[in-house]
Design a protein around this nucleic acid. Structure first.
Lengths: 193, 193
DNA sequence: ATTATCTATAGATCTATAGATAATGC
DNA sequence: ATTATCTATAGATCTATAGATAATGC
């Protein structure tokens, strides 16, 4: 009962982050005001400052949450079905399912000072492995995936266009360029210079 | 003299767009308030509404300007030195030189209703030609270039990283996937399925 | 005694409209 | 007569602080 009614400070901070997340996911970053967050928690906006030093701290918590979930999801996909294309599909699916949670850590400068040690690397690791460890190709592939997601989220492709072929083309092209390592049988083998 | 002192309405609208652009390029979209624009023109903010129905109309003029300049630049590069890599370098250079002007038409939903007929297609045409006309590869390549630019602008790559190799890798990969057409001699020819 | 919360409010914005005034063009 | 401009201001925000009050934990 106590737990349900008046939650302790530690739980309150978690409630605030959860509320911020719900507003962010439903209405976007612009709607995520301190007042909107507080309303959802059932307190007044100034009370937030007893739990977080400022609004950026709440946002940073969401960034960490978003990156962690992405990292977990990509790692899970990698474990089940290795390869670039499955990873890319999961990446796209996750971003489209949570567009605002995607934008927060991906489409803005990253608050690196607020991140747990190693999270950024952990998020990138499955992609790095999928392209055979080449950092240049990993960057190019990341940019491709990020660009595809952003252009789709911003409605920049023709309305109703089937974007799957473009994803396949991109993944195929980068797989072909990647150093052969655990390459699946149906991928054409070719020389690299 | 008359021209320099009190410009006619038509010129005033152009002045407003120019002022908005200068603020946008220097301080970004958030700084481009109606008041900041008006200050720079030397009038009061409410006077803007005699020349534009609302602030969005001024922004739309900047979007058209940005897209037109990008289209012109890419067409010029294509005429001088055909190929995907020169185009990509020009694209990157233009975006880095004018980051906020890049973001306005590229990193937000596009106000298509406010665009001159054919401008969107004209901007995309050089890239389409550079990848041999395949629309899927063109989309993938566009996404790659946009992603590279956005990640660089948002400081998402490691600080001080040399991104040129990633651009080369991406362009090479997509050129290899593109249908052979005016392909340069040093590009490895290979089959497509 | 400490902590969480509240009310009240500072202090900065923003876009846009209403209505008055001055300047320009027939 | 029309047009551009002005002042004044509506009406909505925003984040964050100050200081009072209530509740909780020794």
């Amino acid at each position: 009962m106590r737990v349900t009614a008046g939650l302790p400070p530690a739980g309150r901070a978690a409630q605030i982050v959860a509320a911020a997340r719900e507003i962010l996911e439903r209405d976007g970053a612009a709607a995520m005001s301190t007042r909107a967050i507080a309303d959802r928690v059932g307190i007044r906006a100034p009370s937030l400052y007893k739990h977080f030093p400022d609004k950026a701290a709440v946002e940073n918590a969401l960034v960490v949450l978003g990156m962690t979930e992405t990292a977990d999801r990509l790692a899970a996909v990698e474990a089940i079905e290795p390869g670039l294309l499955p990873l890319a599909r999961a990446y796209r699916g996750h971003a489209l399912a949570h567009p605002h949670m995607y934008r927060l850590p991906a489409a803005r400068p990253l608050p690196r000072h607020a991140l747990p040690e190693g999270l950024e690397e952990r998020t990138a690791a499955p992609l790095h492995r999928a392209v055979g460890g080449d950092p240049e190709i990993a960057r190019a592939t990341w940019a491709f995936a990020h660009g595809m997601v952003m252009l789709e989220l911003d409605g920049r492709f023709p309305p109703g266009a089937d974007l799957d072929p473009a994803w396949v083309q991109g993944c195929t092209a980068f797989e072909a360029a990647a150093p052969a390592r655990h390459r699946s049988a149906d991928t054409p083998a070719e020389h690299l210079h």
